[in-house]
Design a protein around this nucleic acid. Structure first.
Lengths: 340, 340
DNA sequence: TTGAAAGCGATACCAC
DNA sequence: GTGGTATCGCTTTCAA
């Protein structure tokens, strides 16, 4: 049985209300009393009881806002499922979770949406957005007002966010290289299809991939590195043209979206011995892995990202004394047809 | 805001105590009143509030017992970590979790331990034990008394357990085959080293492996299938002898313990082109994967098994109205050096 | 600046 | 059989 506020109050010879005030750093407390209560609570090892807190919390209306650029991007469906799972669990405690949907990665669109959220008075936010100075600044303003922000799927380090919940992009790239090195011992001539050269995660996957190839002593050369903006038509054309121009290509590293386009080009040109290295588990990728055209895909637990993101906000509010939250790096998961 | 007992009581024109009695199917309630309350609670969509329940639960002393044959078997260390993580979370609600440690898989030892636990009056149990009739019967007696039992890591289907939390052994075996088929297109001559022919999970891994090989059209033959009882000396000797006798062997499928022994034999005989197919992430396996002697290992989220096992008991008690719990099948995770 | 008391939702227990 | 009430731990409000 843990120690309660009541016991601390008794030990300090004050009322429970006073202890509560001290523990929440509210004003209007005698500094000496505050000091003593703090010492006692430390000494007695006080840990607030969740059940009690949560029941009492029902009186306020707590709302979390989760913003992400999911429109037109099926990857985020799973993240949203995670948000919703957390929302269902937190409903009991009177907490509401709103999801704000954006399309694409235009900085101004994101800034506008974040400002709107700030005005809406959320008690905490999960944000999947761009890591650029203007947005860092925007988030910083929010966090300085004491509103916890969790960066989900893409980190925004210099923004005051309480933690990052998402994948390790470098590890993901490295794992793709590790798998390639297991599958083939030959020299690799590689086409890299990135989503955007301005998205950090994409660059990190490429970096990790190259690191991995070197660590595994895979002889390789990069034939070309192109941007397809997660678009299948673009990636189809780019793949087709590059393959025609470079018959020596042995593998295609598709950093983000555009796998189906690349896959189509490979099939059409009947270059089936080419390894397509893919990420995530979108329906088309799933299908290609199942039918054997793609050997494996590297996944990142998107559902968990949504779930944990919201839960980190909740824990932050529940344990306000601590004011620290650890990053949560999801597992880098290799999926082949058999374990999907 | 969900509907509460108070609201149902008001709607039915009875007291909260009566509603509570109905919802818990306690005796001494007028059947007509009970009927009406039940209808109302359905109609109004009553879902008990966790925070309230948990706070009230502190009055009783709830204890869970978790039994597993971990002594001398490092695999279970992670499962225990999961039990402990759940225990830490549940401590707030006044719930205690005991761990009962056994050595090995002797049926009588397990029966004795289970009987002792039944006598100890636990409110719920997690059991990792043998799936044999005597034990099924033993568990059945407990579950018939209304005590929820979760089978962890190994299922005991005909025992009245509320659910199974653990891996899909067939899928694990199949995934090993899938990986092998990715890595090599050659015909495979395979030595299978099982832990015990009497442990269902081991047999299922072998079954899944063979299914996978066939599905992937891998030409193969099983050179020999032996029992090593998870012992490294045994597996070393068996591997060494078999390899000397059968120089054609291309891969060794180690179903459970004994990987380090087999690995040592392979290294000593300098047969490094042999693929060793391993499961789980014990320190020695980790090490072998890191140094490249073993390409990958198929894992099963043991920590999650312990955690979810206990949490299923908790949910069962918290939502006694429902009385149903889903199995939780952990992911089949492929680990290579890069994503460990 | 502090204390006392009410209330969050569910439950246990004592009266009637 | 049923209602009323105290209680779990914490927060908030109203007095003092």
């Amino acid at each position: 049985m843990s120690v309660t506020i009541k016991e601390i109050a008794a030990a300090a010879g004050v009322s429970r209300g006073t202890v509560d005030r001290v523990l929440h750093n509210r004003k209007d407390v005698n500094p000496e009393v505050a000091q003593q209560v703090r010492e006692l609570s430390d000494k007695m090892g006080y840990i607030p009881n969740r059940a009690g807190k949560m029941l009492a919390a029902r009186k306020q209306q707590i709302r979390f806002g989760c913003m992400l650029p999911d429109i037109g991007n099926p990857f985020f469906d799973k993240v949203i499922e995670g948000f919703k799972r957390a929302a269902a669990e937190l409903k009991d405690y009177g907490i509401k979770v709103d999801i704000i949907h954006l399309r694409g990665f235009n900085a101004q669109t994101h800034i506008d949406a974040i400002r709107k959220m700030a005005a809406a008075g959320y008690s905490g936010m999960c944000l999947t957005t761009l890591d650029v100075p203007e947005i860092q600044q925007e988030i910083y303003t929010i966090t300085q007002n004491g509103i916890p922000v969790v960066s989900v799927n893409t980190d925004i380090p210099d923004s005051g966010r309480i933690c990052y919940v998402g994948t390790d992009y470098i590890k993901a790239g490295r794992t793709a290289a590790g798998m390639l090195s297991l599958i083939s011992k030959n020299e690799q001539k590689i086409l890299i299809i990135s989503g955007s050269f301005h998205i950090r995660g994409h660059n990190e996957r490429i970096k990790g991939f190259r690191m991995g190839l070197e660590e595994h002593n895979v002889p390789y050369s990069i034939v070309n590195t192109v941007e397809a903006f997660d678009d299948n038509d673009d990636s189809y054309k780019l793949t087709r043209n590059t393959l025609l121009e470079h018959p020596e290509i042995t593998s295609i590293f598709v950093v983000a979206g555009g796998v189906p386009g690349a896959y189509r080009a490979v099939k059409e040109l009947d270059r089936r011995s080419i390894y397509i290295l893919a990420f995530d588990e979108l329906p088309e990728i799933r299908h290609a892995v199942k039918e054997g055209g793609i050997g494996f895909t590297i996944c990142q637990e998107p559902e968990m990202q949504g779930y944990v993101g919201v839960m980190r906000l909740f824990s932050w509010l529940m344990e306000e004394g601590k004011k620290n939250a650890n990053d949560y790096i999801t597992q880098t998961i290799i999926k082949i047809a058999d374990n999907m």
